[in-house]
């Protein structure tokens, strides 16, 4: 079972939910796909870390062989190449590493070279296998890193896998949820929170993923996110209170389920509901 945890903005509680679900599960894998600022490892403090560099392929030109036919310039849909003053200019950051230019070049003037964009770390924290994706600062996209993280975990059907997504609903999030069996949308009880919840709601609907919502930071006042869920008929999986003691645990990088009976119960029950929901969906799908 693969469960993706996402939200339309940062700071709603994706990491709180995914870390605690993984800790509540007997034997789980936690994958931090928030590669621009991964922080799940702060809670798990994984040991026996193995590291792997992630590289993408970028074209390199041999200007002596280039005849200026511009086949590569015309081909590139991302306009990563320009031909100026009898010289080919390559924009590494714009390149999507499709390899088309070097394949097309009739003069074999273009070759590909590897460019490291980040790394993944794999470690153990008690019963939880912790994967962390880290994008190098200044790089345009973390998608190659997320691909590698998820490819590493593509065949472990029997395991419970929790994917901590990047915030928002852009390509990088789509990549993170594409293989998920179930999506958890984490929402805040504000109008801004509803706006962001709607973004990820539209995304998971578009991807035809089964999903439910976790309402975080719940106060006794009216909850606009709850109202939105009722309007859209979104199943509310859990309500996490706006609780100073939970905030303190989080700030000290403690995993709430390991420290508090209340939260152990809350996340165990959430895990049970999510497992049931995901299984139901699989049953109806087949």
């Amino acid at each position: 079972m693969k469960v993706a945890v996402l939200s339309g903005k940062g700071g709603t509680g994706k990491t709180l939910v995914s870390v605690n679900l993984a800790a509540a599960s007997a034997k789980a894998t936690y994958i931090d796909c928030d590669v621009e600022e991964p922080n799940g490892n702060l809670f798990f403090k994984p040991e026996e870390i193995c590291e792997e560099e992630i590289a993408v392929k970028i074209p390199k030109v041999n200007n002596e062989l280039c005849t200026g036919c511009r086949k590569c310039v015309d081909f590139c849909k991302f306009n990563a190449l320009a031909y100026i003053k009898n010289k080919l200019i390559i924009f590494d950051d714009v390149c999507h590493s499709c390899g088309g230019c070097s394949m097309l070049c009739p003069e074999k003037a273009l070759t590909e070279e590897e460019k490291v964009v980040g790394k993944i770390q794999k470690g153990k924290s008690d019963q939880v296998t912790v994967y962390t994706g880290i994008l190098n600062i200044g790089e345009a996209t973390g998608i190659p890193i997320i691909n590698r993280l998820l490819a590493d975990n593509s065949v472990q059907e029997d395991k419970e896998i929790f994917i901590d997504c990047p915030p928002g609903s852009a390509c990088i999030v789509m990549e993170s949820i594409k293989d998920a069996d179930y999506c958890i949308l984490v929402a805040e009880p504000t109008l801004f929170g509803v706006h962001n919840l709607n973004m990820v709601y539209e995304l998971v609907t578009l991807f035809n993923k089964p999903f439910g919502a976790v309402l975080n930071k719940c106060l006794e006042d009216e909850n606009p996110a709850e109202k939105f869920c009722l309007q859209k008929n979104i199943k509310i999986l859990a309500r996490i209170p706006f609780d100073a003691s939970l905030g303190a645990l989080n700030s000290n990088a403690e995993i709430a389920v390991n420290e508090s009976e209340v939260y152990k119960d809350l996340f165990s029950s959430l895990l049970e509901i999510v497992t049931k929901e995901a299984q139901n969906e699989t049953a109806t799908d087949s």
Partner: peptide, 18 residues
């Protein structure tokens, strides 16, 4: 023609200017 590009519109537009 760069106006409809998926990405890198500035590069393509600049190429056209050149």
């Amino acid at each position: 023609s760069a106006a409809a590009s998926t990405g890198g519109a500035g590069i393509k537009a600049a190429q056209a200017i050149v």
